[in-house]
Every structure is written in C-alpha cells, then in structure tokens.
Design a protein around this nucleic acid. Structure first.
Lengths: 129, 129
DNA sequence: TGAACAAGTAACCAAATGGTTAGTGTTGTG
DNA sequence: CACAACACTAACCATTTGGTTACTTGTTCA
C-alpha cells in the first residue's frame, strides 16, 4: 500500500484534528447508513417511486426513518423529490445524476466485499471469547 | 447503470427479506464504523502500534471504544494482536493481509468521494428547511 | 514501602437513536 | 355518511450507544 496516499487521506479525514467537522467522513457516513443505502438501491432499481412504494420496497423501515432518510438524501443532492399537488397528494422520488454515481459506487463496494465475506465469517467463528 | 447488477446486489443484501441477518451489510457496517475506520488507517500508516499509541493517534477515542473496536477488527481477521507477557505487559497491533486489503479499499473510497464533497456541501447550503 | 506502568475492565450515567401509534386534511368510493 | 388513500408529523417511550472514572495485576525502581 502506498504510504503517501494513506497519509494524505489521514490528513483529509482530520484524524489528528479533534473536534473538527470532517465533511468527507460526514458524507460517507450518511450515504452508508443502513436505510439510506437501501433507499438508494431500490431507487436505482425502480427509477421512480412514491413514498408508499419505497416503504414497501425497503422492508421494515418505519415512516419516521423513511422521511428522515429521504430528506437527508434530498438535502445532499442524491435524490429528487417531485410533488404533484393533486388530492390525494402525489410525491415521486428518483435518483439525481449524483445519486446514480453513488449508486454505482455502492454496488461496486458490495460486489467487491462479497467474496471476502465467507473468510470473515469463518474468522468470527474461530474467535473465542 | 447496469440494472442486472443492481438487482443482484439487492438480492445479496436481502432488502426484501425482513429479519434476516445479512453478512455483507454486517461486514460493511463494522468496517465503515467511525472509530474502526480510523484505526485501520492509523495502523496502515504506522504498521505496528501498541494500545496507548493507537489511543494517541486516534484523537478522541475512549479506552472503552478502542478496546471494542480492536476486538471486532481482530475477530473479523483485519488486525493481529500480539501479546508479549513482559511486565508491564506489551501488546502490539498491526493489520493482517486482509486488513491491508480493506485499508486499500477505504483509501480508494475516501479518495473517490473527496471531489464530490464540495458539490454536496453546496447542495446542503441551498436546501432550506 | 509505595508509586508507577501497561492494557485493559467494570460500573455508572447521559445522550442519541429509532420504533410505535395516532393524528393531519382533503376527496373519491361503497 | 363513514371510510380508505396518501404523505407525512408529533408525541412518547424503550433500547442502544458511548463517554467518564476508577480499578486491576504484578513487578521494578526510588
């Protein structure tokens, strides 16, 4: 591994600067959150979904967390929120271009980690105490 | 984006299987945890560190979280823990080969996300309410 | 004799996280 | 005329998370 690159990233992530807000860590943490990740993935698959659709697709999510996660994704520019002021109201969610980029990275990450998982599971089983 | 691949990952991540334990999500979540990530990075930079060294390098971490994170990393096979039964006791931590692989991926991920951060920060500022 | 050291561990506590349930307002349907 | 549909929001509460502080253990050094 390239030491210079590691050192650079350590600086970028502000490991030695206590108390500082690090936007890189922040953006990463938010996009890699359990529910957020799932929402990006289902929006990647279905392209356009209404609130209730996402709720059905992401099994187990509560309306509270769904709203919260969608707002964060919207705020960070990963998701479009389009409101149709009909009655009953209709709201459609979809990935932005930036959201698509993140989707791609998430899929890559999951695909990359997949073959490592059996080894790790084995390592866990052998770990006593 | 390749729809087949997204569909495959959605299946791998068990989005539609409620209550199931998904090892991929699990392994990802543990390695991407705030403190765990920092520990992998400082071990990548310094190669071998004692408990107190890691504590100094990862500014702000409490001994409780340090122990917990190191145990998880050891359990998952990312970190070696070598005990020298001297007095006072000496314990050295270093990355395993697998840990080095994860380090590389973490650095790649951070490096990749870095140029996206200013756009996201701007998007946040423009987001009202 | 007793303080210091290393690598934790134990006990306690505050804060954050997130689930559940009920409610909002309007309109089309049985 | 009551109820379902939709996209949330508010209030409440249980659980989880993680920080702080003090303690352990055996030997060496002052």
């Amino acid at each position: 591994m390239n030491d210079k690159k590691v050192k650079q990233i350590l600086e970028d992530l502000d490991v030695e600067n206590p108390g500082e807000v690090c936007p890189i860590k922040d953006v990463l943490a938010e996009v890699l959150d359990k529910w957020t990740m799932m929402i990006i993935l289902v929006l990647g698959k279905h392209k356009v979904l209404r609130f209730a659709d996402v709720r059905r697709s992401v099994v187990g999510i509560s309306p509270k967390m769904l709203t919260k996660s969608l707002r964060t994704l919207e705020r960070d520019g990963h998701v479009n929120r389009k409101v149709y002021p009909e009655v009953p109201i209709r709201v459609e969610y979809s990935l932005t271009e930036q959201g698509e980029v993140f989707l791609k990275k998430l899929v890559d990450l999951a695909a990359w980690i997949k073959p490592h998982v059996p080894t790790i599971v084995k390592s866990r089983e052998q770990f006593i105490k």
